[in-house]
Design a protein around this nucleic acid. Structure first.
Lengths: 342, 342
DNA sequence: TATAACTATGTAAGCGCTAACATTATACAG
DNA sequence: CTGTATAATGTTAGCGCTTACATAGTTATA
């Protein structure tokens, strides 16, 4: 009858054709006569019929839906990646679902299960710095997951991960930041954030140390503070540096793991009576939307997140199995100053 | 055989039972003997079997997946709503997919189509201020969409919308902000952002004007500037106020539609040589993560976005058909000062 | 011991599509 | 005309589950 949600059978009988014919016009096959096509399309429009993607998925094995696993959507860095992914997905008729990151590296939740039973066409996993044991867990979850669907990684991907990935060249990036600060005359450069035990050869510490070495600057342990990538932790970290050191040893520049950390550093510095940027230069990373509106506007590194997300979707959809480096650019604003002569 | 992805048939035959029995243990039915259950569970574990949610959805009509429609994921306000929704959804075994907002109020894309053919268990739509013609289009898209799945609205929902919704009491909120500023002695209070033609009776203008009236303050048209809710537009808006008015008529306080606009206002004010907060008080809305790290830390209104998202999911899942007001609280920081005596 | 009343399990019919294969209609060559 | 290639459409068997219904196996009741 005139049911609310017609099926392909309803359309077929109303149009006086077989379901195969309806399916053909739905999928735009050419072997349908003009007359029949019009008749069917008319019926579809009149009944406002929409084929069920569920049923389609069952038969054709392609669901036109992708997944994305993010550590934290509240960090705009990941929201940008997601946005890029969703826009590219949409161009290809796909949608993107969000999945919780914790399920992959925490044994509390059966790893990847929730992901696996929704048969997706692929999933993007954004990888964060993780201590070694969790890295282990993550890797095994990913291998498990790959049995069900294609996986592309984004972010801090250890070289031993044999997955298609878009990776940050963290070392190069850090080297450039250090070089920039050195060019402004800085010699006491702190670096805040990240996981100490992280063994990733691509990790930022390598670049940091490289950069110092290149400038013939010593590596000073008390200028390196580890912590979570949040504003609060960033503040605490700089607080601890400034609290433990005599003023004459205070760093003149601080590199933050990301902009969130940098925001915390700015706050800490201000509370310690430092003038920004004259007394302390701050560099962040991720170039969040708020970076230009901080005081002073934050110099940061833009990793082109939307592009990363979009590219990941392409890799998934094209079945590309490459490991690519994402590009990035430094965005110089006003948060760094030449170090004042003594 | 030992296929990579076993089906319920594989499990059934390996365990020596019927598919119905496997289905029973999968769904945790009690009418299975202990012995059989264990045998089946063992087989499931050994083969690493995961039932296809696609096939499940076809038969049972419930897909355990929800949709969310957002104007802009890059605005952390919406990212918070999404996060709240996804956490609540996860507790209920559901996932959440992101859909583009433009498809609902733009005729360029067949409204709601992409949403409709993924049979979702429900969809959350975050509604923004819209000019009347687009509001019209949006409403008709929503009605269309509702034929396929439950819909819950969040945000600036006009009273004539007959949908379950979580609405902002924008008028009350604005009244409180105005009252707060008046209590600090402000008499020239600007308000920036939003759509002029918006006819929503709940819109902020009502509260703004109410607030002024209550304080026996005149409504001054040049203190009311409309524009998109972005930092750039916020800056432009305040630039135009300060540019057009003689200094003695400059507002002493500005209310921004949201924190993004507020950020732009702070920048504009600074560029005009105003000291914050002594020369200009600024109030935002949404209480974004960066609000405490702006200079000065921004006084804002926290609308409990995660709670809104979570609540929306509950309404969807429980089939609640209510229209609720979300609660909110002012978060006083340092961006407002008492107006200096003349 | 026959019968009712469960309990545990199996059978089979869909769900709404796709796609391989079958069939019919139409055209065109010999 | 007849035979055969071609275009247009129809038939049907799944896809991997859920679920009503059927059946066999046990135990309780009279």
């Amino acid at each position: 009858m005139n049911r609310e949600n017609p099926t392909i059978y309803d359309i077929a009988s109303e149009a006086g054709v077989s379901i195969a014919t309806v399916s053909r016009v739905l999928r735009g096959e050419s072997s349908v006569s003009e007359k029949t096509r019009i008749k069917v399309e008319e019926t579809i429009a009149r009944r406002n019929y929409r084929p069920s993607s569920i049923a389609r998925g069952l038969t054709s094995k392609v669901t036109h839906s992708l997944g994305i696993v993010l550590p934290k959507l509240l960090n705009p860095h990941y929201a940008m990646i997601f946005t890029g992914a969703q826009e590219e997905a949409r161009k290809n008729g796909c949608t993107v679902s969000l999945f919780p990151w914790a399920s992959l590296h925490t044994s509390a939740y059966d790893p990847a299960l929730m992901l696996a039973d929704r048969r997706l066409d692929g999933v993007i996993v954004c990888v964060e710095y993780l201590p070694p044991d969790q890295t282990e867990q993550l890797l095994s979850s990913l291998r498990e997951l790959r049995k069900f669907m294609p996986v592309v990684l984004i972010g801090c991907v250890p070289p031993e991960y044999d997955f298609p990935a878009i990776i940050n060249n963290n070392a190069a990036l850090m080297r450039e930041i250090v070089a920039y600060l050195v060019s402004l005359g800085h010699e006491r450069i702190a670096f805040i954030g990240g996981v100490q035990e992280d063994t990733d050869a691509l990790r930022r510490d390598v670049g940091y140390e490289d950069g110092l070495r290149q400038a013939k600057l010593p590596y000073i342990a008390s200028y390196r503070v580890y912590g979570k990538a949040t504003p609060e932790e960033g503040k605490k970290a700089l607080d601890s540096i400034l609290g433990h050191l005599k003023k004459e040893y205070w760093p003149t520049a601080v590199i933050a793991l990301n902009d969130l950390v940098a925001m915390g550093c700015q706050l800490s510095a201000r509370e310690h009576g430092l003038r920004l940027p004259q007394d302390l230069s701050v560099v962040g990373c991720d170039d969040l939307f708020c970076a230009p509106y901080l005081t002073p506007p934050l110099t940061s590194v833009n990793p082109h997140q939307q592009k990363m997300g979009a590219r990941a979707v392409q890799m998934l959809l094209n079945g590309e199995n490459t490991r690519e480096e994402s590009d990035w650019e430094m965005v110089i604003r006003d948060s760094c100053a030449e170090v004042s002569k003594k």
